[in-house]
Computed example of a mutant assay.
Amino acid sequence: ANGVEVAYRDATGERTISADYCVAALPPHIMARVPTNLGDAVTAALKTPTLTPVGKIGLEYRSRWWEAEDRIYGGITETDLDLTHVWYPSYGFHGKRGTIVGYYNTGANARTYGSLTPGQRVERALAQGAKIHGDRYRTELANAFSVAWHRTPYLEAGWVGWPSRTTGEYELLNQPQGRVYFAGDWLTYWIAWQNGAFDSARKVVTALHSRVQAGG
């Protein structure tokens, strides 16, 4: 009733930290696996959002051939390939090098690429992208980096979605549970965007400030 305790384990062993309040900013599906005394309704609500697999690759090229040869300055090529999108940088025009987003995909396409090794992701992305841009898509490549957010520990998704915001779970987690507050983009209407995280953080900090000012 007068505070919170969070137990955790790190390289030095098990520890407990005490505080007046807790702002829980873990993704909901991760938080749902953390044992708490907040009740079954909270745990069930945390399990409600659905996970979105997401993948992305950056392809760095030795020259900005898409500008010099194709006059492409920023923007996106929408495809019916499993790449989904190819994005071009909107900065550093005519510089020595540049990085293209070779794919930014979700769902089944993201799982397909995510199941591959990093090297295999590059090869698949190059093979598909060459259908659009030709051999230079492969021959001019300098480096690459990819990520599969659904395979990243403690994230396990690019973002989450709500099957419904009117069945009570969304409203429940947007309210303090005793001295525990939940925060994250998933508790706003700007899921997957930084402004959603900012919006949620501002809401929680404002609520905590008001509560403490009123005597807590």
Results as ranks from 00 to 15, higher is better:
residue 59 L to A: 09
residue 134 G to Q: 13
residue 25 A to V: 02
residue 116 L to A: 06
residue 204 V to A: 04
residue 63 S to L: 02
residue 117 T to R: 03
residue 111 R to P: 02
residue 169 E to K: 04
residue 22 C to R: 08
residue 194 Q to V: 14
residue 26 L to E: 03
residue 156 E to C: 04
residue 63 S to A: 12
residue 159 W to E: 05
residue 50 T to L: 14
residue 182 F to H: 07
residue 201 A to Y: 07
residue 81 L to N: 01
residue 211 R to I: 00
residue 172 L to T: 08
residue 136 R to H: 12
residue 35 P to D: 07
residue 171 E to Q: 14
residue 79 T to R: 09
residue 53 P to A: 10
residue 117 T to E: 00
residue 92 G to K: 09
residue 27 P to R: 06
residue 41 A to L: 11
residue 130 A to T: 02
residue 128 Q to G: 10
residue 125 A to I: 02
residue 4 V to Y: 07
residue 208 L to D: 05
residue 107 G to K: 00
residue 110 A to W: 05
residue 3 G to Y: 10
residue 189 Y to K: 11
residue 22 C to N: 12
residue 193 W to P: 01
residue 193 W to N: 11
residue 185 D to I: 04
residue 68 A to D: 15
residue 70 D to M: 15
residue 82 D to S: 15
residue 165 R to K: 15
residue 15 R to G: 02
residue 49 P to H: 01
residue 214 A to C: 09
residue 112 T to C: 00
residue 87 W to Y: 10
residue 99 T to L: 06
residue 155 L to T: 05
residue 161 G to L: 08
residue 127 A to I: 00
residue 144 A to N: 08
residue 75 G to P: 05
residue 181 Y to S: 00
residue 143 N to I: 07
residue 125 A to P: 00
residue 84 T to S: 13
residue 67 E to A: 04
residue 106 T to E: 15
residue 160 V to M: 00
residue 160 V to Q: 01
residue 132 I to P: 02
residue 83 L to M: 06
residue 202 R to E: 13
residue 94 H to L: 00
residue 74 G to L: 07
residue 109 N to H: 13
residue 127 A to D: 13
residue 46 L to T: 06
residue 191 I to H: 06
residue 5 E to H: 10
residue 157 A to I: 04
residue 157 A to S: 12
residue 64 R to P: 08
residue 182 F to T: 04
residue 123 E to V: 06
residue 66 W to Q: 01
residue 54 V to I: 11
residue 109 N to Y: 10
residue 206 T to Q: 03
residue 144 A to P: 07
residue 40 D to R: 09
residue 133 H to I: 10
residue 53 P to W: 02
residue 68 A to I: 14
residue 209 H to A: 09
residue 203 K to E: 00
residue 126 L to Y: 01
residue 126 L to W: 03
residue 80 D to R: 14
residue 137 Y to G: 08
residue 175 Q to R: 14
residue 3 G to L: 04
residue 61 Y to G: 02
residue 1 A to W: 11
residue 102 G to T: 11
residue 134 G to L: 15
residue 202 R to S: 11
residue 32 A to K: 04
residue 18 S to W: 06
residue 210 S to P: 00
residue 134 G to N: 10
residue 48 T to K: 14
residue 181 Y to R: 07
residue 200 S to F: 04
residue 8 Y to K: 08
residue 153 P to H: 07
residue 98 G to L: 02
residue 39 G to T: 13
residue 89 P to A: 11
residue 63 S to D: 08
residue 123 E to P: 03
residue 17 I to S: 11
residue 199 D to I: 02
residue 178 G to F: 05
residue 184 G to M: 05
residue 21 Y to V: 11
residue 62 R to Q: 13
residue 179 R to K: 10
residue 73 Y to H: 10
residue 214 A to Q: 13
residue 88 Y to R: 12
residue 54 V to M: 10
residue 160 V to N: 01
residue 193 W to V: 08
residue 69 E to T: 12
residue 3 G to I: 04
residue 45 A to R: 01
residue 97 R to S: 13
residue 51 L to V: 12
residue 194 Q to C: 12
residue 111 R to Y: 06
residue 216 G to W: 11
